Amino acid sequence: MSIPKEMHYSDRVGWLRAAVLGANDGIVSTASLIIGMATAGATLAGVLTAGAAGAVAGAMSMAAGEYVSVSSQKDTEHADLARERRELAANYEFETRELAEIYEARGLSSPLAQEVAEKLMHHDALAAHARDELGFSDVSEARPLQAAIASALTFLAGAALPLIAALGASRQSLAVVVALGSLVALGLLGVLSARVGGSRISVAVVRIIVWGVLAMGATAGVGWLFGVSSA
């Protein structure tokens, strides 16, 4: 009878990080931009135009940033694997002993560690060293395109929320409505990310809301300062 594969929260870490980062940035940056423009005295049309432009620009920036950074990680992984492949070809016995020492450090006896190392080297030497020496795994594998798409789409989804709130607000209540709506959205995002990632909900919600308040407060101050200065 085959044993069913267990699902772990760490299996989701690659796309979850990009998705939460994208949605959080979409909400915070777009809401902050709208609030900053509103406190500066911009018209409702100007605020909405700036918010929409910021949403598109932010999504493209997130996609580009994720793709470049994760591609750099992938290039480093490939370089390490190429180096390990050369070392295996040049000194197979040394690499076997190196692997055995890793298993000894984890608690295996010396004879058992040597036996395990030899069997794994025979099965797939490069995979064994990639996993146990370099720390690479399928869970942490760099996927640039996946990260870029997840970040861009979730940024746009997050950015849509303060824009929708702005559409339903009057000019006088714009900043307050957008701020409150965005904080609610951030709280829900914290709950969702905690549930999906298996972490404590209260911690996730508090930290995401605190940073959102700081960002919106800072841009409101900038908008008020420049609005007063230009009056």
Rank of each mutant, 00 (worst) to 15 (best):
S182G: 09
A160D: 00
S32P: 05
L108Q: 11
L180H: 05
V191M: 11
G198F: 04
R17W: 10
R195H: 13
L16D: 07
A50I: 03
A18N: 13
A150K: 01
V222M: 07
I102G: 06
T76W: 15
G65E: 01
A142W: 05
R12Y: 13
N91C: 06
R131M: 12
V205D: 00
A82I: 10
A204H: 02
R83M: 15
L167T: 12
S140Y: 09
G187E: 01
L214M: 10
G181M: 08
G197I: 04
S71E: 12
A165V: 04
R207L: 03
Q73N: 10
L156T: 10
V178I: 07
K5D: 12
E66T: 05
V70N: 04
G36K: 03
M7Q: 14
L44Y: 08
L44M: 10
A130I: 04
K119M: 12
A79H: 14
R83F: 15
R207K: 14
I34Q: 06
G158P: 01
A113Y: 03
L16H: 08
A31T: 01
E141F: 09
A79S: 11
A128K: 02
L174W: 06
A45H: 12
E141D: 11
I35Y: 00
N91I: 06
L183E: 02
L81Q: 08
I34V: 13
G26V: 02
E6V: 14
S193T: 01
V20I: 11
G22C: 02
R171M: 14
L174V: 09
W224N: 11
A100Y: 02
S137F: 05
K119C: 10
A64N: 07
V176H: 07
G36V: 08
V116E: 04
A179G: 07
Q146K: 15
V68P: 02
A18Q: 08
A90I: 10
D138S: 11
R12G: 05
G51I: 00
L183N: 00
A57F: 03
A160M: 05
V210Q: 04
M1R: 13
W211D: 05
F226M: 11
A125M: 01
L163M: 12
L153N: 02
L99A: 03
S193R: 01
P162D: 05
T30C: 08
L33F: 05
R106V: 06
G135Q: 11
A18P: 10
V20S: 04
L153P: 09
L112F: 12
E98T: 12
S2M: 15
S10W: 14
S173V: 14
A105G: 13
A55T: 00
Q73Y: 07
A175F: 00
D124Q: 08
V210F: 14
G135L: 08
M1G: 12
W211H: 11
E6P: 13
Q146T: 15
A194C: 04
R207Q: 11
S199Y: 05
T43S: 15
D132G: 03
G158K: 00
R17L: 13
G135E: 08
E93T: 12
G168A: 10
A220N: 00
E84T: 13
R207Y: 03
L16I: 09
T76N: 14
L189G: 01
E98D: 13
E66H: 02
T39S: 08
A175Q: 01
L186I: 05
G190H: 02
S182V: 04
G197L: 00
V47G: 01
E133S: 06
Y92H: 15
D80L: 15
R195Y: 09
H78Q: 15
A148W: 09
S72W: 09
L188W: 03
V56G: 12
V47C: 12
T30W: 07
